[in-house]
Write a protein that binds this DNA or RNA. Structure first.
Lengths: 144, 144
DNA sequence: TTATCTGCAAAGCCTTTGCACTTAG
DNA sequence: CTAAGTGCAAAGGCTTTGCAGATAA
């Protein structure tokens, strides 16, 4: 319920590339979409295994790669060394506040910042494809 | 010639922590400071070995850790999976344009962006410790 | 049918760690 | 003298890859 668009995008990408669908890929996509958190590959694998215990880590990595390629998923590397994934479709672009205390991630957006990034790029002759802004600090809870 | 400040910072940090100086640490610091590029640990190791072939990779990693701790060095992880280091002292804070074509890194700064980041953090009860802005795209050369 | 997919285990990176020896202080 | 540093090699994480069997189209 509610992920028809994403599933369609994935299906079409798979078809376009001459690949095949599979139970595993569908399971991984659904779990990924359902989880409103920034997961590591390993965390995602852990949740997926509850639904389908035989799925291996390699399949999770391979599927995440496909999801990135078709624009449903974004990978980002944090300064703490972890690599996390979030879904993109149906989410506005945003940046992150990262709490170095408890690991909390808060999504934020400032249009002026976005515009000025574009401007910086243009000034240096760059054509932007994406960007990543992470603000590290401690959240209200961890400041106490 | 010119790195007295940095060496002093390092010396004092080492002393303060009850550690010792060494030929290797001095060599690594000097090469690191001399190189006006964002190096990987392995690249730094390669350059250091030209000066002192017996230095091992482990010592480079251990020294980079110290340099981060005393504020002379900043580590950042790019989306291409590499981890790079840049020196901080005597450099104003800046962000990066990253060319996904040739790997070029351009340092940029926009005070309004900086201010607005601070504002975003405050709005969410965060206390900023640092931040990381990377704008990915293709540079003028790679656009041709 | 047959090209793709899967799980597993092995292999690859990059980084850290344990150890015996060396060295700064 | 002795706590800390070093190089090496081994061990650790995380991710990718090779392979033989399974499966979608």
């Amino acid at each position: 319920m509610g992920y028809e668009d994403e599933q369609k995008i994935f299906d079409e990408y798979v078809k376009k590339m001459g690949l095949k669908q599979s139970e595993q890929r569908r399971d991984i996509l659904l779990v990924f979409l359902k989880t409103e958190k920034h997961l590591t590959a390993d965390e995602l694998h852990g949740i997926v295994k509850k639904k389908n215990p035989s799925i291996g880590a390699a399949t999770v990595y391979r599927t995440l790669k496909l999801l990135r390629e078709c624009g449903l998923c974004r990978e980002f590397r944090l300064n703490d060394g972890t690599t996390r994934y979030e879904h993109l479709y149906g989410h506005d672009h945003h940046d992150h506040l990262v709490c170095t205390g408890c690991g909390a991630l808060v999504e934020v957006l400032d249009h002026e910042i976005e515009k000025r990034q574009e401007k910086l790029a243009v000034q240096h002759g760059f054509t932007i494809s994406s960007h990543k802004l992470e603000i590290y600090g401690t959240c209200a809870k961890c400041n106490n």
